[in-house]
C-alpha cells in the first residue's frame, strides 16, 4: 500500500469499527416470550433424560406452532411417550395445539421417530 500522510486518519476509523464489533458481540438478545417457554420445555425434558438435546422451534417464522425435540439415538426409549410428555409440558407453559416432532439428532435426512399434534 502506498504510504500516505492521510493514512493516520484510518487509525480512529479502525479502532471505532472494532469497538463496534466488540460491543455487538457483548450483548445477547434476552430469551423472552416464546423463546422462554420453549427453553423451559427443554429444561424440564432434559431432567433425568440425558438422551434429549433440547426443544426448538422447527421453523424460524414468528408464531410457529411446531416443536422439534432433538434426541440422541437410544435403544429402548418410547419416543411416543416423549412426545406426550412434551405436549403436557407445552400446555403447562401456555403453548396449545403444538405439532411435536421427535427427531434423531445428527442424521441426514432427518429421522423423525415420533410425531404428535397436541390438544
Amino acid at each position: 500500500m502506498k504510504k500516505s500522510k492521510y493514512s493516520i486518519l484510518l487509525l480512529p476509523i479502525i479502532v471505532l469499527l472494532y469497538a463496534a464489533l466488540y460491543i455487538a458481540t457483548s450483548y445477547s438478545v434476552p430469551c423472552e416470550g416464546d423463546c422462554e417457554k420453549v427453553s423451559k420445555i427443554t429444561e424440564k425434558l432434559r431432567t433425568n433424560k440425558s438422551y434429549v438435546y433440547g426443544a426448538f422451534r422447527c421453523t424460524y417464522f414468528q408464531g410457529s406452532d411446531t416443536l422439534c425435540i432433538y434426541v440422541q439415538d437410544t435403544i429402548g426409549i418410547d419416543w411416543n411417550h416423549l412426545a406426550d410428555t412434551t405436549c403436557l409440558l407445552a400446555q403447562e407453559n401456555g403453548l396449545f395445539q403444538q405439532k411435536v416432532f421427535v427427531i434423531k439428532n445428527g442424521t441426514f435426512p432427518n429421522d423423525t421417530v415420533a410425531r404428535k399434534t397436541c390438544p
Binding site: 504510504k3 479502525i14 472494532y18 458481540t25
Partner: peptide
C-alpha cells in the same frame, strides 16, 4: 474461537496500518 478471530483481526489491522506509515 470468536474472541480469537476478533483479536487476531484487530491486531492485524493495526499492524498493517502501521506498515503504511512513514
Amino acid at each position: 474461537g470468536s474472541d480469537f478471530c476478533w483479536a487476531f483481526s484487530f491486531s492485524s489491522a493495526l499492524f498493517i496500518w502501521e506498515s503504511t506509515q512513514y
